[in-house]
Computed example of a mutant assay.
Amino acid sequence: MPRHSRGGRPPRIVFVEPAETQVLALTVEQTVRLDRALNVLAADPADVKPHATATALRDYQHDGIRVIFYATALGSILIVTYVEAD
């Protein structure tokens, strides 16, 4: 069973610039893969490996999608700072 913060509710996901602009440039197929990746992240963001250059950031890569994000202290919000798709 996935662990969620805040009593079982998934975290809110927020995109900051330039990630928001990067998302707007994705194709429909890439957006579907991004949605799947965000569902995985929301299920257990603590399980994602730290980014190589900043330990507060997390770096998730799967199925041609890369999402760099960090979670608030209580894990109630995931802040996406970078999105990449091939």
Score class of each variant (00 low, 15 high):
residue 1 M to K: 11
residue 2 P to Q: 03
residue 3 R to D: 13
residue 3 R to P: 03
residue 3 R to Q: 13
residue 3 R to N: 08
residue 4 H to V: 06
residue 4 H to D: 06
residue 5 S to H: 13
residue 5 S to Q: 09
residue 6 R to M: 15
residue 7 G to P: 01
residue 7 G to L: 10
residue 7 G to E: 10
residue 8 G to L: 11
residue 8 G to N: 11
residue 8 G to Q: 09
residue 9 R to M: 12
residue 9 R to C: 12
residue 10 P to Q: 04
residue 10 P to M: 06
residue 11 P to W: 06
residue 11 P to A: 08
residue 11 P to L: 05
residue 11 P to R: 07
residue 11 P to C: 08
residue 12 R to G: 10
residue 12 R to N: 10
residue 12 R to Q: 13
residue 12 R to L: 14
residue 12 R to K: 13
residue 14 V to I: 14
residue 14 V to C: 08
residue 15 F to I: 03
residue 16 V to P: 01
residue 17 E to V: 03
residue 18 P to F: 02
residue 18 P to Y: 07
residue 20 E to I: 05
residue 20 E to A: 13
residue 21 T to S: 14
residue 22 Q to H: 00
residue 23 V to H: 04
residue 24 L to W: 02
residue 24 L to F: 00
residue 24 L to P: 01
residue 25 A to D: 12
residue 25 A to Y: 03
residue 25 A to L: 12
residue 26 L to Q: 04
residue 26 L to W: 01
residue 26 L to K: 07
residue 26 L to F: 00
residue 26 L to T: 04
residue 26 L to E: 04
residue 26 L to D: 04
residue 28 V to N: 11
residue 28 V to Q: 14
residue 28 V to I: 12
residue 28 V to W: 08
residue 29 E to S: 11
residue 29 E to K: 10
residue 33 R to C: 13
residue 34 L to C: 05
residue 35 D to M: 09
residue 35 D to V: 10
residue 36 R to F: 13
residue 36 R to G: 12
residue 37 A to M: 01
residue 38 L to T: 06
residue 39 N to E: 13
residue 39 N to M: 09
residue 39 N to H: 09
residue 40 V to G: 03
residue 41 L to T: 06
residue 41 L to C: 08
residue 41 L to Y: 01
residue 41 L to A: 04
residue 41 L to W: 03
residue 42 A to S: 12
residue 44 D to H: 09
residue 44 D to K: 11
residue 45 P to M: 05
residue 45 P to R: 04
residue 45 P to F: 06
residue 47 D to R: 15
residue 48 V to A: 11
residue 48 V to E: 09
residue 49 K to T: 10
residue 49 K to D: 13
residue 49 K to N: 09
residue 50 P to Y: 07
residue 50 P to Q: 14
residue 51 H to W: 09
residue 51 H to K: 02
residue 51 H to Y: 15
residue 52 A to Q: 13
residue 53 T to C: 09
residue 53 T to M: 13
residue 54 A to I: 09
residue 54 A to N: 15
residue 56 A to V: 15
residue 57 L to D: 14
residue 57 L to E: 10
residue 59 D to A: 00
residue 59 D to W: 05
residue 60 Y to S: 07
residue 61 Q to K: 13
residue 61 Q to D: 11
residue 61 Q to P: 00
residue 63 D to Y: 02
residue 63 D to N: 11
residue 63 D to P: 02
residue 63 D to Q: 12
residue 65 I to H: 06
residue 65 I to P: 05
residue 65 I to N: 08
residue 66 R to D: 05
residue 66 R to N: 12
residue 66 R to C: 07
residue 68 I to W: 03
residue 68 I to T: 13
residue 68 I to P: 02
residue 68 I to G: 06
residue 69 F to D: 04
residue 69 F to P: 00
residue 69 F to G: 00
residue 70 Y to T: 08
residue 71 A to P: 02
residue 72 T to W: 06
residue 72 T to E: 15
residue 73 A to V: 09
residue 73 A to Q: 10
residue 73 A to H: 08
residue 74 L to Q: 12
residue 74 L to M: 09
residue 76 S to I: 10
residue 77 I to H: 12
residue 78 L to S: 01
residue 78 L to E: 06
residue 78 L to C: 07
residue 80 V to I: 05
residue 80 V to A: 03
residue 81 T to A: 07
residue 81 T to K: 12
residue 83 V to D: 00
residue 84 E to P: 00
residue 85 A to R: 04
residue 85 A to H: 03
residue 85 A to V: 02
